[in-house]
Design a binder for these strands. Structure first.
Length: 338
DNA sequence: GGTGCCGGGCG
DNA sequence: CGCCCGGCACC
């Protein structure tokens, strides 16, 4: 069961990955994309917990790598925070100046010569800036239009809706999936992608409200796709940490989340104790849901297994009478809920 | 192989 | 219903 908070988390995590990807040394080195296969495209850092259909999101989860609940900030606890970071990726060391320089001027070598080129265009009125990376455009919007200077690492996903992707080369279409760059939060879905004009924010005030009230709502349902790999975590699925190299390279571990109007959230309401989906992949119906995208055949929604210790482990087989009834009945534990 | 727990059977 | 377990996906 996914809570709304988790959904938000997904989004936040996705955003984090996006930004951290751009600042990660990995991205800068040429051979980031050894091949064009799904695996190759995704193992770099994608990730994000995902959820299942029936709500604003749909996705296919990775069976693995889902045990890492994490929040961008603040750390839930010492432990989770530790898990959240990967030993190989100290995410610091890059100062702001370098970061922006990188984001704005250095296109990420995402594709080989003949593949299509994807650019991201800012949709703010009188702007129209075009950058080559989603992270770059997000940063641009965040700093220039949203005025969030200090929180360069943080994204609530709002900026995702203020820019659009432009494809400048249409050959090689077959790899629909691999063409989805892990660094691109908003991708077009062939038939339903609206023109960029459709998603032009008219107001720049109140962010949260804006999302619900702007014209976004009329086009959002089918136009924005969030792509991430899974890990909940929280999640949904599982959690890949920004910049983490730990993402499971075995194909099945990524997810694409579709979402209707931007999920609304300003803060990150993450409960320290409930950041993992408990049982099956079901999740609460989101109030922002406007429609449900079709389920892809290859999406599998395996339920992430509860992570926490349960009665059995805590008390042991010998003390079975101390277990909660659910555990005794071999049902979902009610005492130690994930 | 252990664990969590869904699905289902039995009283 | 309460109670239990086969079986399976996860670890």
């Amino acid at each position: 069961i996914k809570s709304p908070e988790e959904l938000d988390m997904d989004k936040v995590t996705a955003a984090m990955v996006l930004t951290s990807l751009s600042t990660s040394p990995l991205v800068r080195s040429p051979p980031i994309r050894p091949n064009e296969s799904l695996n190759g495209s995704w193992k770099e850092g994608g990730f994000v917990p995902s959820s299942t259909s029936s709500s604003g999101y749909w996705s296919w989860n990775a069976p693995s790598d889902q045990s890492n609940p994490s929040t961008p900030s603040p750390p839930l606890s010492a432990d989770s925070f530790k898990a959240f970071r990967t030993p190989s990726q100290p995410d610091d060391g890059i100062d702001e100046a370098e970061t922006s320089n990188l984001l704005f001027d250095e296109p990420i070598p995402r594709k080989r010569k003949n593949s299509m080129k994807v650019m991201f265009k800012c949709l703010w009125k009188n702007c129209g800036k075009v950058l080559s990376t989603a992270a770059g455009i997000q940063k641009h919007i965040r700093t220039i239009h949203l005025g969030r200077v200090g929180e360069s690492d943080y994204s609530d996903g709002e900026e995702d809706f203020y820019y659009t992707e432009i494809r400048l080369n249409t050959d090689s279409v077959a790899d629909g999936l691999s063409s989805l760059s892990p660094v691109s939060p908003s991708l077009a879905s062939p038939p339903s992608f609206p023109t960029q004009d459709a998603i032009r924010p008219e107001t720049s005030c109140a962010k949260t409200e804006t999302k619900l009230m702007t014209p976004l709502s009329r086009s959002a349902p089918t136009n924005l796709y969030l792509v991430h790999t899974d890990h909940a975590y929280q999640a949904t699925p599982p959690v890949n940490i920004p910049g983490s190299t730990k993402f499971t390279p075995n194909g099945s571990s990524f997810s694409i989340s579709w979402q209707s109007p931007p999920v609304t959230f300003t803060g990150i309401p993450v409960s320290p104790t409930h950041n993992r989906p408990a049982g099956s992949g079901e999740q609460k119906q989101s109030h922002t849901v406007l429609s449900s995208p079709p389920r892809l055949p290859f999406l599998s929604d395996r339920k992430p297994r509860g992570e926490g210790k349960k009665c059995r482990k805590v008390y042991g087989m010998e003390n079975r009478d101390m277990w909660c009834t659910a555990c005794r009945w071999k049902k979902a534990c009610q005492r130690f809920i994930d």
